[in-house]
Amino acid sequence: MATDEPPPAFKIPQSVLVVIHTPALEVLLIRRAGIAPAFWQSVTGSKDWPEESWAATAVREVAEETGIHCGPGTPLSLQDWGLENVYDIYPRWLHRYAPGVTRNTEHLFGLCLPAPITPVLAPREHDAWQWLPWREAADACFSPSNAEAILLLPQFRA
């Protein structure tokens, strides 16, 4: 939903995780820029507005972070896995949230592409990408919730 209001001063502690994969269960991972050690992950991102739907957040984040368009009117469609993770926000990122906010709710989606593609990364956010078999992708993830989501992939294969 578009609005003329300025974005919230703090990040909203509601985010999406989108596991982009192929029918052969190859998974796209992108590396966060400027973070050491390497921080490999799937597409993630927070709601821009409290009333933004989970699906709208996922479509926006996939486009922003990979250049892949998967919203209404495109041949690709997200699969809502109907799962959520609630986890403690890493201390290094607590300053992005309102005082006292320490936990985030993450809604899970999958996006199946017919074959691996070359993503168009947002250079201020990500600086590298790779396609890996699903188990290797889970092992490469920095975030435990991301790794667990990838390990669920065979259950959600289209």
Rank of each mutant, 00 (worst) to 15 (best):
L111P: 00
R32I: 09
A115Q: 15
L17W: 03
P114T: 10
E136W: 01
L151M: 09
Q14D: 13
A36L: 14
E84T: 15
Y87G: 07
H126F: 10
D48I: 01
S143L: 03
W134G: 06
P37G: 09
L28F: 01
E106S: 11
E26N: 04
A138N: 07
A138I: 02
L29K: 01
P72N: 14
L17E: 07
D139L: 12
A138E: 06
P116S: 00
V16N: 03
T102K: 14
R60E: 00
S42A: 13
A63D: 07
I12L: 15
K11R: 15
G67A: 07
Q14T: 15
A36E: 15
V62D: 00
Q14G: 08
R92S: 14
Q14R: 14
G82W: 07
S143M: 01
R92L: 13
A98W: 08
P99C: 05
G110I: 02
H126A: 11
E125F: 08
R135V: 07
K47W: 09
A63C: 10
R103A: 09
D139I: 02
Q130L: 08
V101Y: 08
P72C: 09
L113W: 04
Q41I: 03
L29T: 04
A63L: 13
D48W: 12
V16Q: 06
V16D: 00
R96Q: 14
C112V: 14
I68A: 06
P75C: 00
S145A: 10
L28R: 00
R103P: 04
S143D: 04
V120P: 02
W40R: 07
A24Q: 12
S145C: 01
G34C: 10
E51Q: 13
A137V: 04
